Amino acid sequence: MIIYNKIWLANLSVQQQLRPALDSGELSKDEFKNIEAAYPVGFYSPNIFVRVGLFILTNIIAVVFGCLLTYMLLDSDLIKSPVWYFFLGLFCYIVLEFVVRRENHFRSGADDALTWISAGLILAGFLILLANRFPLYDSNSITKLYWTAGIVFLLSSYYTIRFTDSLMAIMSFLSLVFFAAVLWYNSSAFGAATLPFLVILLSGIIYYFSLTKTKQPALIYYQHCISLVQITSLVTLYLSGNYYVVQKLGTELYGYTTIGPYKVPYPVFFWPWTILVPFIYTGAGVYRKNVILLRTGLILIAIAAVTFKSYYHVLPIEGTLVLIGIVTLGGSYWLIRYLKMPKHGFTYEELAAETIPGGINVESLIIASTQLEDTPKGTQSPFGGGDFGGGGSSSDF
């Protein structure tokens, strides 16, 4: 299903895994060039500045082309129907397939822009079609929400599988959670009361499966997508139990009561969750040597402190932010000094991985790279022509 050349994707993974060794001096430039020759990549992947430029240029071309076609058919009823949006979206998708398959674009900016333009136009076509065909969709806001979330989930999942797009992977996860949350909220009064717990459960399940299935060979080309889904699921897992978020969501759903804003029903659960979960993330990251858990936990600690500050005014906001900054910088400096030498499997120094996804050993690859240079086509035998003793050996033997 994936559109990209899988051999090139595997070779690109090899080169990316070996770049830290090149930067640290463990691998010479000549050795790295030999590895690039042995593991070639034919993708067009420019630097970030060219990528941004191509992204903007592609959007401009698409807008001008779409406006020109729409102006040519301005008097026709076709542009008022969803068929017109489907046509434009499918046209952009065909161009995207051509750019990726024939021109070998890979995260070049042009393919990024065409991905989002085609998906957006196809989504607009579906939404207009639903509004025209089903009056209930246009009149019922709940129905509109879960239909929209379902279509977004299907589209973003397809683009994720087809083009390994990381942002589409995040969109697929968020739309799935939103779809389930809307259905659960609309099911009954019990569903509305337990909505945060549903999001917590769903986020935890998705994180668990993304963590346990990440090493499967079939998912080797989606490592970056899986990493971003893990980060997003950890954030939604925490925020769905954050006291401030739960109260704001309840106020939006139920409005203000006679006694003030929405009252969180289970503070004995949500306050410990708000304060303790970021520290659990951080501790689990250290224990399991998981960088995603560690960094996410450290960021959420600051969010937990701001949440606590919103309800309990122990210090002025300026003093709170300064205190958080001092603690964070002091802790980071201490960890950097402490982990200069590896301790308990952790170190501040970035080390090259021993293996590359797919089972390739980095050290063996580096050693093999030294044997990739051209060897002389002819090698003179150390044995002579029998000039001494008649035994077939020269005097040089």
Rank of each mutant, 00 (worst) to 15 (best):
F153A: 03
I170H: 01
S394V: 02
I35A: 05
V291M: 14
E354I: 06
P20H: 05
P278M: 05
H344K: 15
Y287D: 10
A189C: 09
F308Y: 15
Y44F: 15
L228I: 04
I280F: 08
L253F: 13
F179C: 03
N34I: 00
G319W: 15
I56D: 06
S175C: 03
V362R: 09
F179Q: 01
S118P: 06
L339A: 10
S156N: 08
N11V: 09
W334T: 10
E26V: 02
L372W: 00
L121I: 02
T232R: 01
I292W: 02
S175Q: 02
G250N: 06
R102T: 12
L155Y: 01
S395V: 11
W84M: 13
I161T: 01
S227P: 00
N11L: 08
L329M: 14
D111C: 07
T258E: 15
K263D: 13
K309C: 06
Y287A: 15
S394F: 02
R133T: 12
I303P: 03
A21C: 09
E252A: 15
A10P: 00
A181M: 07
G384R: 07
Y311I: 10
S45C: 13
E103P: 00
L174D: 01
P40Y: 09
S175Y: 03
I205T: 07
P261C: 05
S118L: 05
V306S: 11
S157F: 01
S166T: 15
L155V: 07
Q247H: 05
I170D: 03
R51I: 08
S369Q: 04
Q380H: 10
E97N: 11
P376D: 10
N290A: 14
Y311M: 10
F197A: 09
F87A: 13
N104S: 14
Y311L: 10
L298N: 13
T164A: 13
L9M: 14
H344R: 15
N290V: 09
V362P: 05
A181D: 02
A62P: 06
R288S: 14
L202G: 01
N361M: 07
V246M: 04
A113Q: 07
L121E: 03
K248W: 11
T296I: 10
E103Y: 13
V199I: 12
F134G: 00
V322Y: 14
S118I: 05
Y158K: 00
S394M: 03
W271H: 04
L372F: 08
A131L: 03
F178Q: 00
F279T: 11
Y243M: 07
G42H: 12
L237A: 02
M72W: 13
Y287N: 12
T296M: 09
S24L: 08
P265R: 09
N132K: 11
P261H: 02
I336G: 06
K80T: 12
Y4S: 05
L74S: 12
A284N: 09
A119R: 01
G120Q: 04
E36N: 10
T232K: 01
L335S: 14
S157E: 03
F87K: 06
W147S: 04
P217K: 06
W273T: 03
Y93G: 04
W147F: 15
I205S: 05
L239R: 02
L155A: 02
L145Q: 06
Q17V: 08
Y85Q: 10
Y238K: 00
V314K: 01
F153I: 02
Y266H: 13
T164V: 12
F197T: 05
V268H: 10
F190L: 14
S141K: 12
V246I: 14
G109D: 05
P278Y: 03
T282N: 05
S394P: 04
